[in-house]
Simulated scan of single mutants.
Amino acid sequence: MSDQSREIISTGTPPWKSPVILSVVLHGLIIVVGLTSLSLRSPEPEPAPRSISARLISEEPPQPEPAPPQVDEAEEKKKQEEAQRRAQKEKEEKEKARQAAVKKEQQRQEEEKRRQAEKQQAAEAAKAEKERERKAQEAAQRKAEEAREKAEAEAKAQAQRKAEEERKRQEAERQAAEEAQRRKEEAARQEQERLERERQEQAKREAEQKRREAERRLKEQQLESLAQNAREKQAAEERRRQEQAAAQARQSEMLSESERYQALIRDRLSRAWYPPPSATEQMTATLQITLLPTGELASVQLVSGSGSTAFDNSALSAVKSLSRFPVPESRDTFERYFRQFTIEFNPEKMK
Score class of each variant (00 low, 15 high):
residue 199 R to G: 05
residue 293 P to V: 02
residue 191 E to Q: 15
residue 278 S to P: 00
residue 120 Q to C: 03
residue 196 E to T: 02
residue 288 Q to W: 02
residue 168 K to C: 06
residue 133 E to I: 10
residue 289 I to S: 04
residue 148 R to M: 14
residue 259 E to K: 14
residue 104 K to S: 08
residue 214 A to M: 12
residue 31 I to D: 15
residue 18 S to H: 08
residue 247 A to S: 08
residue 109 Q to A: 12
residue 257 E to A: 06
residue 342 T to W: 01
residue 192 Q to F: 13
residue 199 R to I: 05
residue 313 N to M: 10
residue 18 S to R: 05
residue 37 S to A: 06
residue 116 Q to S: 15
residue 212 R to D: 06
residue 260 R to I: 02
residue 128 A to C: 07
residue 67 A to F: 11
residue 117 A to K: 11
residue 198 E to Q: 13
residue 281 E to H: 05
residue 169 R to V: 07
residue 237 E to D: 08
residue 154 E to R: 11
residue 202 Q to A: 14
residue 239 R to A: 08
residue 130 K to H: 04
residue 250 R to E: 09
residue 65 E to W: 10
residue 334 F to I: 03
residue 331 R to M: 13
residue 294 T to Y: 08
residue 155 A to I: 06
residue 204 K to R: 06
residue 256 S to L: 03
residue 183 R to G: 07
residue 175 Q to H: 15
residue 170 Q to G: 10
residue 126 A to V: 12
residue 200 Q to F: 06
residue 226 L to N: 05
residue 28 G to T: 11
residue 204 K to C: 02
residue 239 R to T: 04
residue 14 P to N: 14
residue 204 K to M: 08
residue 92 E to V: 05
residue 29 L to K: 03
residue 341 F to K: 03
residue 12 G to N: 14
residue 163 A to D: 00
residue 277 P to H: 01
residue 73 E to R: 09
residue 334 F to W: 00
residue 348 E to G: 11
residue 102 V to I: 15
residue 98 R to P: 00
residue 85 R to C: 05
residue 96 K to Y: 14
residue 235 A to N: 09
residue 344 E to D: 09
residue 123 A to Y: 09
residue 261 Y to G: 03
residue 124 E to A: 10
residue 211 R to S: 08
residue 258 S to L: 04
residue 139 A to N: 03
residue 174 R to E: 01
residue 54 A to T: 12
residue 68 P to F: 14
residue 54 A to L: 03
residue 120 Q to H: 11
residue 23 S to K: 00
residue 39 S to Q: 02
residue 348 E to Y: 09
residue 74 A to M: 11
residue 106 Q to K: 12
residue 214 A to T: 07
residue 80 Q to Y: 05
residue 239 R to W: 00
residue 243 E to M: 05
residue 347 P to Y: 00
residue 117 A to H: 14
residue 198 E to K: 10
residue 268 R to D: 10
residue 125 A to Q: 09
residue 1 M to D: 01
residue 287 L to S: 02
residue 141 Q to H: 06
residue 116 Q to G: 01
residue 111 E to W: 15
residue 205 R to P: 00
residue 311 F to M: 00
residue 51 S to Q: 15
residue 161 R to T: 09
residue 333 T to D: 12
residue 19 P to N: 07
residue 296 E to V: 15
residue 284 T to E: 04
residue 52 I to Q: 12
residue 201 E to C: 00
residue 344 E to A: 13
residue 101 A to S: 04
residue 339 R to H: 05
residue 288 Q to A: 09
residue 256 S to V: 14
residue 94 K to M: 13
residue 159 A to M: 04
residue 127 K to D: 07
residue 61 P to V: 00
residue 282 Q to V: 14
residue 89 K to I: 12
residue 279 A to W: 00
residue 90 E to R: 11
residue 35 L to R: 03
residue 251 Q to A: 14
residue 181 Q to K: 15
residue 215 E to Q: 10
residue 193 E to H: 06
